[in-house]
Design a binder for these strands. Structure first.
Length: 606
DNA sequence: GTTAGGG
DNA sequence: CCCTAAC
């Protein structure tokens, strides 16, 4: 029998309400020190910086005047096999073992696929290679710059939105990234910060106002996931899972963003970001005309051409995909903060920009735009940008076709997500949770096989980023490895998840039967399906339980544990302290089942 | 990979 | 919960 092993969740799970403390790991904070001096990148970086600032402002002002809203695509995943009922036959104490709390795991995992920015002012990138003047720096965040090229206002560009310049792209089949077992109900989220209008999508399944009078629109999305094999948590800290992988899809950078918290406050982050990006302003004086990043649906549109210069309007930037995990009971506010933090962390980690012409990445930073063909009117419409994790060392060969974040003006702007949602047949493509679990012992994040093959042959993404699936696989597999060398700041403490009484009950029960030296068995026995509980966790919990039981009730904190349980803890503790190993031979899980009563009781009675 | 124990 | 030593 193959036991499921802990599957470390790759997700962003900030539990603000429950985790007041700051991560101890505010140590390593290394920002990307890339020295890329590419103009385009710089421009984009500046733009990003400003956009990030904008986001932060949005996020910080509790006034929350922003108009941000999500589009959540709720994936309905079968859960039947995700959790295995706790064995109860072993209970000889008459207490029917209730289903462990991990079965209450109703956390939704969210996948943030896109993040667009306000459209109030169009983000205009002006490249004037021969020019020597800076028009404007992005310090004027929010300032209403002249909106040159208003004629192709985002809203009209794709005709998808009701004038809101909203991103419609959401879930792309190829982007469904989820750990099936960990994601009972994965949610694909598309984030957009519109300029005050609402997107209209056909797949809304829910619509609710959040506490800031903004709208959340939920809609179904295809149950299509990519699964990854992830190594156990033991080496989690050494593994830069944050940039677990990214692939070439029109959605853009794929980032498996593991739970973590920014070591910096938003202010600090903002400061740092600005500083850095300013410092790295393009040496050859390209300028960012507006900083507000009026971004909408993924595209780059040509504003107009002046002689010798190129003006671009970047309609949208997608952030690398983020996984977010929040309990259903979480507040909208906490969700916001979670997303905010995720985005902040992501951006603070550095982002690189790639340039694509006709879907092909232009690697030579030395080439001029005209040499690249970007100056041509025709090509300009086929100009795209990519966002990539700002790693100083990004594997070159396999990442050649980096994820597209800003893609050429889509001729067919319908989001893949919508298509996905409309393709129920694809739902069957979800890898079964068990499949994922069975072999998640690899360090790399490897796309689940079935995923690749399910790619929609004619999806936009393929057209936009012609990258063979195989290549993607390689890239995915290699990225984490190459990044391994000290992606320091990524290490992050897991979110604290206090044991519930039910869990304690299950733990006590198991320890009573198995003893205190067999945590793996305890895990397998009582918490096999609680992927977030490692045997070390159980051991630690037991430790605290023993301590808790030893102190006066007044000194105890947290959710009170029934005295009855604490008594059992002490009893078991005392027993197993005296019978170390004596019953190990017969204490094997299978034996314990027949033990009817458990080692503790039978042992004591003897 | 597991345990055990300190942090 | 994290980190490590020890096995």
């Amino acid at each position: 029998m193959v036991f499921k092993r802990k599957l470390d969740c790759v997700s962003v799970a900030f539990d603000y309400p429950n985790v007041p403390r700051a991560p101890r790991s505010c140590r390593r904070k290394v920002l990307n020190k890339g020295t890329d001096d590419d103009d385009a990148k710089m421009c984009a970086m500046d733009l990003l910086a400003s956009l990030a600032g904008k986001i932060l402002e949005e996020g910080q002002s509790s006034s929350a005047s922003s108009n941000a809203f999500f589009e959540v695509n709720n994936h309905e995943v079968k859960q039947e096999d995700h959790y295995k009922p706790l064995k109860s036959e072993s209970s000889d104490q008459g207490n029917s073992v209730s289903r462990p709390p991990y079965e209450e795991n109703t956390n939704d995992k969210c996948v943030v696929n896109s993040f667009s920015f306000p459209d109030n002012d169009e983000g205009v990138l002006e490249r004037t290679p021969m020019s020597d003047h800076h028009k404007k720096i992005h310090g004027e965040i929010g300032g209403g710059h002249g909106n040159a090229g208003s004629e192709q206002g985002v809203a009209t560009t794709h005709g998808l939105e009701d004038g809101g310049g909203l991103t419609t792209n959401t879930c792309h089949l190829e982007d469904k990234t989820a750990l099936g077992v960990q994601f009972p109900k994965p949610v694909c989220v598309d984030m957009t910060i519109p300029n005050g209008s609402l997107a209209r999508h056909g797949n809304h399944t829910n619509l609710a106002r959040d506490d800031d009078e903004k709208l959340f629109s939920y809609r179904k999305c295809s149950n299509k996931f990519m699964s990854y094999r992830i190594r156990k948590s033991k080496y989690r800290k050494q593994v830069p899972k944050d940039y677990g992988h990214y692939r070439s899809v029109d959605v853009g950078v794929k980032v498996l963003h593991r739970k973590r918290k920014s070591c910096y406050g938003y202010n600090g982050w903002l400061r740092e970001t600005k500083t850095i990006y300013k410092r790295r302003r393009s040496p050859d004086r390209s300028s960012v005309v507006t900083s507000d990043g009026g971004l909408s649906n993924a595209s780059v549109s040509k504003l107009h051409e002046k002689r010798g210069s190129v003006k671009l309007s970047i309609k949208s930037f997608r952030i690398p995909e983020l996984f977010i995990e929040v309990p259903e009971t979480a507040t909208v506010g906490s969700l916001k903060r979670t997303v905010m933090e995720a985005v902040s962390v992501l951006l603070s980690g550095g982002i690189r920009v790639g340039v694509l012409v006709h879907g092909k990445k232009v690697r030579d930073d030395k080439r001029t735009l005209s040499q690249t063909g970007i100056s041509c009117e025709e090509n300009l419409t086929n100009l795209g940008f990519t966002l990539e994790p700002g790693l100083s060392k990004v594997p070159i060969p396999l990442c050649s076709e980096d994820p597209v974040v800003v893609v050429p003006p889509p001729t067919e702007p319908t989001s893949l997500c919508e298509r996905s949602a409309a393709s129920p047949t694809l739902d069957s493509g979800i890898p079964h949770a068990d499949d994922v679990i069975m072999d998640n012992n690899n360090l790399e994040l490897v796309p689940y096989q079935s995923e690749i093959s399910i790619d929609e042959p004619s999806s936009d993404s393929r057209a936009l980023v012609p990258l063979p699936a195989l290549e993607e696989v390689k890239a995915l597999a290699i990225v984490p490895l190459n990044q391994k060398p000290k992606r320091t700041e990524l290490a992050q403490r897991r979110t604290r998840r206090p044991f519930s009484v039910t869990e304690v009950e299950a733990l006590v029960q198991a320890v009573e039967e198995l003893g205190t030296g067999r945590w793996r068995d305890v895990k397998l026995r009582a918490f096999e399906n609680a992927d977030h509980r490692t045997y070390v966790d159980l051991k630690d919990k037991w430790k605290t339980l023993v301590h808790t039981a030893s102190i006066s009730p007044q000194q105890r904190r947290g959710e009170p544990v029934p005295q009855e349980l604490l008594d059992r803890v002490l009893r078991a503790y005392g027993y197993w302290s005296q019978h170390q190993g004596k019953h190990h031979a017969r204490g094997a899980p299978k034996d314990a089942d027949t033990n009817r009563g458990g080692a503790l009781e039978s042992g004591v009675s003897v």
